[in-house]
């Protein structure tokens, strides 16, 4: 899933100076699962905003809504009848949903209510960790299904650097060394000898380095 974190309200408030109505807009997908931008968080932020506006003596209409997905025009269209009632939208979707909402409603100010962090998964309740950077050319077959692009601080393709200590990365004791994991996996698979195969220079043109990316599937295109 796409993992996000809630922005502090102090960062959001200056954007809402002078607005008379604001819609807090959640998303029922990834940000709900990672507890940053689902219905519950929409309610929390909306209540907090109402309190601040009341303290400021401002009359601001704070609306709440959570769409099935903000990254899908079909669901965004559900706002068409109600969005004109608001001066601004604070979207708690990931960066994709925030932009898609703004694209769908070009005259509406849309602000981010979360920081979109990474593609990852929950290690346990309340702990999420990065697993993929969407580099566009998956190498997991070579590395025992542990990604050095997303999980090595130096995205090294050919082994741990000299800073790997007791399974931890040189950048800190809380960070696992991806290459320790890769070696452990290769060993478990009886493929440790594969470590010595040099992974060639990567084609980063399929990564963000190549510019904004698009996937076009003619066979499913309508």
């Amino acid at each position: 899933m796409i993992v996000a974190e809630r922005k502090p309200i102090e960062e959001i408030l200056p954007w809402l100076e002078g607005v008379r109505s604001v819609l807090v807009l959640g998303c029922n997908e990834c940000v709900t699962v990672c507890e940053a931008g689902g219905k519950k968080e929409v309610g929390l932020l909306a209540s907090a905003l109402r309190m601040v506006f009341a303290q400021q003596g401002r009359e601001v209409n704070v609306g709440e809504r959570t769409l099935e997905r903000q990254c899908d025009p079909e669901y965004l269209d559900e706002l068409r009848d109600s969005i004109d009632a608001y001066d601004a939208v604070v979207s708690l979707a990931c960066g994709v949903g925030i932009q898609f909402t703004a694209e769908r409603y070009p005259s509406k100010a849309v602000y981010p209510g979360v920081n979109t962090c990474f593609m990852g998964a929950a290690l346990e309740r309340g702990v999420w960790a990065e697993r993929c950077q969407g580099c566009g050319q998956c190498l997991l077959a070579l590395t025992g299904a542990v990604c050095p692009v997303a999980r090595c601080a130096k995205r090294l393709f050919n082994g741990p650097c000299g800073g790997s200590t007791a399974g931890k990365c040189e950048i800190g004791p809380d960070v696992e060394c991806a290459w320790q994991r890769i070696i452990d996996r290769l060993k478990a698979l009886g493929r440790l000898a594969d470590y010595e195969t040099l992974i060639p220079v990567k084609d980063w043109s399929k990564d963000r380095a190549g510019g904004p990316r698009k996937v076009v599937r003619e066979d499913v295109r309508s």
Binding site: P160, G163, S164, T165, G167
Partner: peptide, 8 residues
């Protein structure tokens, strides 16, 4: 020679 994992 001193980093981990030693076996590799």
């Amino acid at each position: 020679p001193f980093a981990d994992p030693f076996e590799i």
